[in-house]
Design a protein around this nucleic acid. Structure first.
Length: 514
RNA sequence: GCGCCCGUAGCUCAGCUGGAUAGAGCAACGGCCUUCUAAGCCGUAGGCCAGACGUUCGAAUCGUCUCGGGCGCGCCA
């Protein structure tokens, strides 16, 4: 249980025991962490029923709360009232013990859900672009943090290797081979020239995508082929049959409709077109049913924001088949607008104007690319200027964090003194602040998990690195004073653990030297 | 027209399940390397949190509306 939850529990018990009535109170992390690490607004919420001002209430109950915490969490905090809030300030020794020798034991979630996280899922009709890179970085980091706190999660890439886009690409290649004009809406991109030589162009594109994702340190537990595993083996057909049997469909004007309006959609959707072929939607229902058939009961999809209109109907379909036994969560990532020297580059596989993910990674590197892409909230449209990114490579925030880690390694290597923390020897304010901030890693991680916001890890690491660098310039770690040195070595080794863990969750390396 | 997302420093963005004085990086300016890594540190400057009204003891945060930007509304995928 996190510290914040334990505080909540203890105060909750106290409220009940005293017979107070209060609702809506919380334990929170103050914006200004200089004041305290945790604070509760309980006095504000009691003020209505007790008819006293929050300050007075806080002053009265704080001594009692101090006493209870002496019993339940001895030595953990300094507790004091300030402007109506009751504040909890962590003590350094407690922090050090809490972090422990192996870092946190961050098994924060008990879940019997089997999660399938699906992301990227690009058409194999061309190179991946920077937007795919964003979903890739986000999805991979999300998987890492979910697993880290105890979820059972597999990842999957859905290969859209059936349908018109594929046919269209093949026609374009065929046209090129025979020196014929491109079909209307054909693919004009440069990369198509290279595909002309390939016996199996689709497979070639797919391999290229796999390869670049691997370079980006993004791997999947499974690559799922729409063509092979849904169409060729008749799975779409059987899924649609199930829907028919359940009375979820009707025929009209030669087409088969799904009654999705019965499940919250805006209009009924076609499953089988009048010409007898399946819609993309039908295949997608089959795909999601397939996931459930394979034993997953919590599906998470990361989609580009341009697909948001599609969510309702997929949820409708899944609900019509499985009710609330299966949860579908769709995370939308806003698109990435690419700029080159301040001018927007409109990307299109068809027209061929594009900057690929591969180019970006080669220009700025995997670590910098991942950190940049995952450090921004996903539902904000992102502007990415390639020239700027190249120019700023050396002051990319990722190096700031990595540098902190390398610096620590360097110091640790030059000393053989055993790290040991003694609260009384922690002299500087920044040292206390650092120890306290380390404990908040669990809080940031949980918020990141709960809100599906991996960017919070990056923000946290920036802040931690900032505090460390500041500490480094204020405090000499290794000195003639053995006890002081041992103390500071303990502090920096704790920082190192958290930095390394955090960077790993982002899929970014933690170098020992830079 | 209807629906979703966004609007915070010159630029790129944090902060948003209501809390204490609005933050960081880059860019600008001024300092700091005979000392564990200067890819660093310290300082200065920079803001009507798009705007208005409302809810509240308290609003960048919640609600309604307006303005501005992005995206979506196929028997395409």
């Amino acid at each position: 249980m996190r510290i914040i939850d334990r505080i909540q529990a203890v105060i909750s018990e106290y409220i009940v025991q005293k017979g107070y009535e209060a609702t809506g109170w919380i334990v929170e992390i103050p914006k200004d962490k200089k004041i305290a690490d945790y604070a509760t607004n309980i006095s504000f919420k009691l003020s209505a029923t007790l008819k006293l001002s929050p300050m007075i209430i806080a002053d009265q109950i704080t001594p009692e709360i101090v006493k209870i915490f002496e019993e339940k969490m001895s030595g953990a905090f300094e507790i004091f009232a300030l402007r109506g809030f009751i504040n909890f300030k962590l003590k350094s020794n407690y922090c050090f013990e809490y972090i422990g020798n192996d870092g946190f034991s961050l098994k924060l979630v008990e879940s019997n859900k089997k999660v399938l996280l699906e992301y990227v899922s690009a058409n194999p009709t061309g190179p991946l672009h920077i937007g795919h890179g964003r979903w890739a970085a986000m999805g991979d980091t999300l998987k890492r943090i979910l697993v880290h706190v105890g979820y059972d999660v597999d990842t999957e890439f859905y290969i859209n290797d059936a349908g018109n886009q594929i046919a269209n690409l093949l026609l374009s290649i065929e046209a090129r081979r025979n020196n014929l004009p491109l079909p209307e809406d054909g693919y004009a991109g440069e990369y198509v020239k290279d595909l002309v030589k390939e016996a199996d162009p689709i497979q070639a594109v797919l391999l290229q995508q796999t390869d670049i994702l691997r370079k980006f340190k993004v791997t999947f537990d499974r690559w799922f082929s729409e063509k092979k595993e849904l169409h060729e083996n008749g799975f779409v057909n059987s899924a649609v049959s199930v829907m028919k049997e359940k009375g979820l469909t009707y025929e009209q004007e030669g087409a088969l409709f799904f009654r999705s309006t019965d499940f919250g959609d805006d209009k009924d959707r076609v499953l089988i077109k009048a010409d007898g072929s399946y819609t993309y939607f039908a295949a997608d229902i089959a795909y999601h049913k397939n996931k459930v058939d394979r034993g997953y009961n919590h599906l998470i999809n990361i989609w580009g924001a341009d697909h948001h209109g599609y969510i309702k109907r997929v949820k409708a379909a899944l609900f019509s088949l499985f009710g609330d036994k299966v949860e579908l969560e769709v995370l939308l990532g806003q698109l990435v607008s690419l700029f080159r020297n301040g001018e927007e580059v409109r990307m299109s596989k068809r027209t061929g104007e594009m900057i690929t993910l591969e180019e970006v990674i080669e220009d700025i590197g995997c670590d910098a690319g991942r950190f940049f892409l995952v450090s921004k909230q996903a539902d904000t449209a992102l502007d990415f200027d390639l020239e700027l990114a190249k120019k700023q490579t050396s002051d990319n925030p990722v190096f700031y964090v990595q540098y902190a880690h390398a610096r620590i390694c360097s110091i640790l290597n030059t000393s053989q003194i055993k790290a040991e923390l003694d609260e009384d020897i922690v002299v500087e304010e920044i040292e206390h602040s650092l120890m306290r901030y380390l404990v908040h890693f669990e809080d940031e991680l949980m918020i990141a998990v709960q809100n599906r916001e991996p960017h919070r890890i990056a923000t946290y690491l920036m802040e931690l690195a900032n505090m460390f660098h500041s500490f480094y310039h204020q405090c000499k770690v290794i000195s003639d004073d053995k006890k002081l040195s041992a103390n500071r070595l303990a502090i920096i080794s704790a920082i190192k653990k958290v930095l390394a863990t955090g960077l790993d969750l982002l899929g970014v390396s933690a170098p020992e030297k830079m």
